[in-house]
Design a protein around this nucleic acid. Structure first.
Lengths: 340, 340
DNA sequence: ATAAAATGCGGAATCGATTTCGAAAATTTT
DNA sequence: AAAATTTTCGAAATCGATTCCGCATTTTAT
């Protein structure tokens, strides 16, 4: 607005045509080295910066990737975004970031906002409420490259990045069993969520594979409100179905469990053992320290960005195939599942 | 790219001039209700979406605010961004978010990227290394509205939002003294940082006001590497200057302190009491639970965005005055400073 | 030395939406 | 019924950078 001269003004100053200046700045072979140097030095002197919107309009691309996440105050999502940004920055891409706050209505609005081409591509993880996907379908139909991660939707034919939710839950549950647990509870979020289903399947299969019984009362469908979850977990811990092991499928549910346990007279890990999907570095600081399944958040972000940028820069050579790419999580055993 | 028709095509379909269609869609008084309805319904039918770059080019504004933070995996900054986004969304603004990773060189690059007008305004918190500010000066000179929060630079004449760092540190230190501490350490980050200086001043004044002595060995300048900080704190705890109270000016330094204490034979709070600036909800979960000074992150974000949007929409009526606006933090006493 | 090709640059159209200027058409006023 | 408005809309310029097309001038080939 205030500062900033245009290409035309720069050209006038140099007594050259705008087309020549443009080519010089873009290092075109049609321009002699002498004038290139002259143009570049004058551009620096006058502090010229190309208007990104004129360029976007002309080239029909914005050098911008939109990222849609359901929560910002969440180590996993924050790390994924860091991973995306790392690659994006290397390639001169900017990041528009949107938080849906786990609200489907907000997700719809944001997605509709992106229908106009403001971003060249989208990386997203859906809300735990997302059942109807017409808004996502519309995005995909429009030809906008989109990849999903973690919370994916199988019904949109594109590439998705996840961790090995099934195996991790399976392994985590097995670990609890090996530590002597016989009544294992599962804390989960939305039923419609891809990852919830996978983790639940892993949990169930592990229990069945050991010849143990599945007790539906031991699966807790939690919400996004901390106090409510704490109460729910507390009730479970005081019920006749009291579990001696808990597999939590989200970091915040593990925190709620610490709270709930604190309110009962139970001791961790002697009375109840806990393992959780988690990405926070404080897992080791909790008392007892928390056994975790850590998702490869940074890598997931990296891969999402790499794939999209390939697709954007060489659209002929790369397709967003309808496939799910899995990057394994890591199990870190700490005190919360220690056998005493 | 693929989908999407232009205004001209929409106009042709309607057998109207592009100008008319534009006005109809923008609800101009010059267009009859009848044609407005006709245009709008056809626009919906054909799924028309205005090209944001054409509009930005013409109107010389992007409806975008850039946010620059030094860390993404940090509850304080994440909350501030949530606060900014809340207001921005209400007004149809988009957020370009950049993480400098506490790296001055990266900060410079990002700031230079914004020199071309891609964003209408900037909200930022500088890195702990930022001493030279010529890059920020350039931004400001260019007339780009910019506000700082938390980590501010007094030498750029614009509005800054902070919390009452001096008073909070003063009060926090007083609290430790009241709990019986006689040798209080301060954990701090960059020396050049505005907030560090304020907090240090509050810490010092509190100690002096009680007639106690300041011991320079009790001020620890920490880095951004967790292991290094843990080692540093551990050494302090084992030295002859062993403190019985610690004021930490960042959440992660508090976590490092928990680690360090765990490695010594010391007990918290009996041997050492700890109070920290922190915004994470897990403070209450730690063992012992952590006494915190919580910054009003969401409000800070809200206010930054409100002010900028006022400035952007009514530039004549609002100026970004060279002033510092303070929003108070809140002290929450927990077990880590309990007297036994 | 003349034809052919390559080099270096300018003119003008283009991307898509907004807006100024102006002109019909419809309405109201006298 | 003629004049003055008001309503409603169209033509064309504009924002700034890119690029197709064209035209000199210089270099290379024959």
């Amino acid at each position: 607005m205030a500062g900033g001269i245009s290409l035309k003004e720069l050209a006038a100053e140099l007594k050259l045509a705008p087309s020549t200046v443009s080519r010089a700045l873009n290092d075109s072979y049609e321009i002699s080295d002498a004038t290139k140097k002259r143009v570049i030095s004058m551009a620096e002197k006058l502090n010229y910066h190309a208007n990104p919107f004129a360029r976007s309009l002309r080239e029909n691309k914005s050098k911008t990737i939109a990222v849609i996440i359901p929560e910002r105050i969440n180590n996993f999502f924050a790390q994924v975004v860091d991973g995306i940004e790392e690659i994006a920055q290397e390639h001169g891409y900017h990041l528009l970031i949107y938080n849906t706050h786990e609200d489907l209505e907000r997700e719809r609005k944001i997605v509709n906002l992106l229908l106009n081409g403001r971003a060249d591509a989208i990386v997203m993880s859906v809300t735990s409420q997302t059942s109807d996907i017409s808004h996502l379908q519309k995005l995909h139909d429009r030809g906008l490259p989109i990849v999903f991660f973690d919370r994916i939707r199988a019904d949109i034919p594109t590439t998705k990045f996840i961790t090995n939710d099934y195996e991790s839950a399976f392994e985590g549950t097995k670990h609890l069993i090996k530590q002597g647990c016989t009544k294992i509870a599962l804390l989960t979020l939305g039923k419609d969520l891809s990852i919830s289903q996978e983790r639940q399947r892993g949990y169930s299969d592990a229990i069945l594979s050991e010849g143990m019984e599945l007790n539906p009362a031991l699966t807790l469908y939690c919400s996004h409100e901390e106090p409510h979850n704490v109460k729910l977990i507390q009730e479970l811990l005081l019920s006749s179905d009291r579990p001696d092991g808990i597999l939590s499928s989200a970091e915040k549910l593990a925190f709620a469990t610490y709270q709930a346990i604190k309110r009962t007279k139970l001791r961790m890990p002697s009375d109840v053992k806990l393992i959780s999907f988690a990405n926070s570095s404080i897992a080791g600081l909790l008392n007892p320290s928390l056994t975790t399944i850590t998702q490869p958040a940074l890598s997931i972000g990296n891969e999402c960005a790499k794939l999209l940028i390939k697709k954007l820069t060489k659209p002929k050579h790369y397709e967003l195939l309808d496939q799910v790419i899995t990057i394994p999580s890591q199990l870190t055993i700490r005190e919360s599942t220690l056998q005493e």
